[in-house]
């Protein structure tokens, strides 16, 4: 967990703070656990047998990362083939896409690459891509090598992490990593809302090494202090 900047009541903090809206879509084959990841993230619950999603489900979740408020508008798409053609509706205008595969089913990992290609060709130009290998709690059944996936993610500058919706491991971190990787320029949500106000992030923050490695932005070395001002805007 990243440290919450300050304030002992995160709920109250979220209520008063300026929020950035982030449209995120989850993509990936049927049964890899997209809905379970979203459920874990949004309501911190897990159900062993979810019905398969129809079209896509929509959910909201607010999160404070490094003193900044983010409101995720999550489109959890259906993995079934018959809904495949609808995907552009959900990644259209999205700030980020989380591509999920199942670490215990090699075939779902292969689908990741075709999603990446599709996003690169037809998705928004600056879309942040995250790749999540779900079901990492089932180590015995593993079919996808972690290192391979990680290398691939790095090669395309995508965020990578292995998650488990069952144990909750890395689920919130995944979304925090997404938030950190969003381009700074469209920070204040369009523009007008705050006029001339500048979003001052709380002083440069000490960041712990995250399980989620952001492709280009987070060096693979140990903990680094990364002043926000060094980001290009």
């Amino acid at each position: 967990m990243a440290q919450r900047s300050r304030g002992d009541d995160p709920e109250a903090e979220i209520r008063t703070m300026q929020m950035r809206d982030v449209k995120v879509c989850l993509l990936g084959d049927s049964g890899v656990g997209k809905s379970s990841i979203v459920m874990r993230f949004v309501s911190n619950t897990y159900k062993p047998s979810l019905e398969s999603t129809i079209g896509a489900s929509f959910m909201n979740k607010s999160l404070v990362v490094d003193g900044m408020g983010y409101r995720f508008q999550i489109w959890d798409t259906a993995g079934q083939e018959k809904y495949r053609a609808l995907a552009p509706m959900y990644y259209r205008g999205a700030a980020a896409a989380v591509i999920v595969y199942d670490t215990t089913r090699e075939v779902t990992y292969r689908a990741v690459k075709s999603w990446v290609n599709e996003l690169r060709s037809y998705g928004p130009p600056k879309i942040v891509i995250a790749i999540a290998g779900n079901k990492c709690d089932l180590e015995d059944l593993r079919e996808v090598n972690r290192k391979d996936a990680e290398d691939y993610a790095r090669s395309i500058s995508a965020i990578f992490c292995e998650t488990s919706a069952v144990t909750a491991i890395n689920v919130e971190d995944l979304f925090m990593a997404v938030a950190r990787q969003l381009p700074l320029e469209d920070f204040s949500d369009g523009d007008r809302r705050n006029g001339s106000t500048v979003n001052l992030r709380s002083s440069p923050e000490q960041r712990k090494k995250q399980c989620c490695s952001g492709g280009k932005n987070s060096p693979s070395s140990s903990s680094t202090s990364r002043p926000q001002s060094s980001r290009q805007s």
Binding site: I54, G55, A85
Partner: peptide, 10 residues
Amino acid sequence: EPSLEAACHD
């Protein structure tokens, strides 16, 4: 049709 299903689901 899947798009109608998706719309109804929303």
